[in-house]
């Protein structure tokens, strides 16, 4: 008499009990690890049309971030400076052999096409981020952008993912500084440990970042 179950059915328990969980866990791991902005976005370092060095301008020369990104304290966007801001200094100095590097800026200043800088930090369009409120609360530039003053070419330093935003919104204190230190690139963990925003007399109200959806998604 023939058997009801063919011989291959002996493998069903193995497939259900071992192979299926392994495949499932692998898929979950792959999405968790490789789909994360920590993997897809961090380290994005596009080549810009002009090899502008933040390491030189913000690092060696010590220019304040707000000299160029001057809208950052009043507006949602930290604007890229117009060519005129570059020419404040570059119209009155000479780079010698390197002068041709800033030719696109000089052309734009003379009325030519604008310099098409490539955006590095790209939040999704459904997240409404506002620079000015973060600065008013005392979150420093380097908390989200990293040590820009050490970057020859700017790259994305932090994942800018939703969980990363929420980590700070749920517990902002470790990332708060005195508001006259926001552009201090060298502000480190030991400075943060020594600073207590609750006893800072220049702060008139407690920082209360929103954790509800419409705080960022409008």
């Amino acid at each position: 008499m023939a058997q009801i179950f063919p011989r291959w059915t002996n493998k069903i328990p193995l497939a259900v009990g071992v192979t299926a969980p392994v495949v499932l866990v692998s898929v979950v791991f792959a999405i968790w690890y490789w789909f994360s902005p920590k993997f897809t976005d961090v380290g994005y370092q596009p080549e810009q049309p002009v090899p502008f060095s933040h390491k030189l301008h913000a690092g060696s020369l010590g220019l304040d971030c707000r000299y160029c990104h001057n809208t950052v304290e009043q507006a949602a966007a930290a604007a890229l400076p117009p060519a005129g801001t570059c020419m404040n200094c570059h119209a009155n100095l000479n780079l010698g052999d390197h002068e041709n590097r800033i030719k696109p800026i000089k052309d734009a200043f003379a009325g030519g096409p604008p310099v098409e800088w490539i955006r590095v930090h790209m939040l999704p369009d459904y997240a409404y981020f506002n620079h000015s409120v973060h600065l008013a609360a005392g979150v420093g530039c380097s908390s989200c952008h990293g040590r820009i003053d050490q970057m020859e070419t700017v790259f994305q330093d932090q994942p800018l993912s939703m969980s990363w935003c929420l980590d700070c919104h749920r517990d902002p204190e470790p990332n708060l500084r005195p508001r006259d230190q926001i552009t201090n690139m060298a502000w480190g963990p030991e400075d943060a440990a020594a600073y207590d925003p609750n006893t800072d007399p220049t702060r008139t109200r407690a920082v209360a970042p929103p954790e509800h959806c419409s705080g960022c998604h409008r």
């Binding site: 999405i31 789909f35 976005d41 380290g43 994005y44 790209m122 999704p124 459904y126 790259f155």
Partner: peptide
């Protein structure tokens, strides 16, 4: 993870980015 890349980020799911 975190390697430098000149190419724009690849998002497996663009949604409404």
């Amino acid at each position: 993870r975190g390697n430098k890349s000149k190419d724009p980020p690849i998002h497996p799911n663009w949604n409404m980015d």
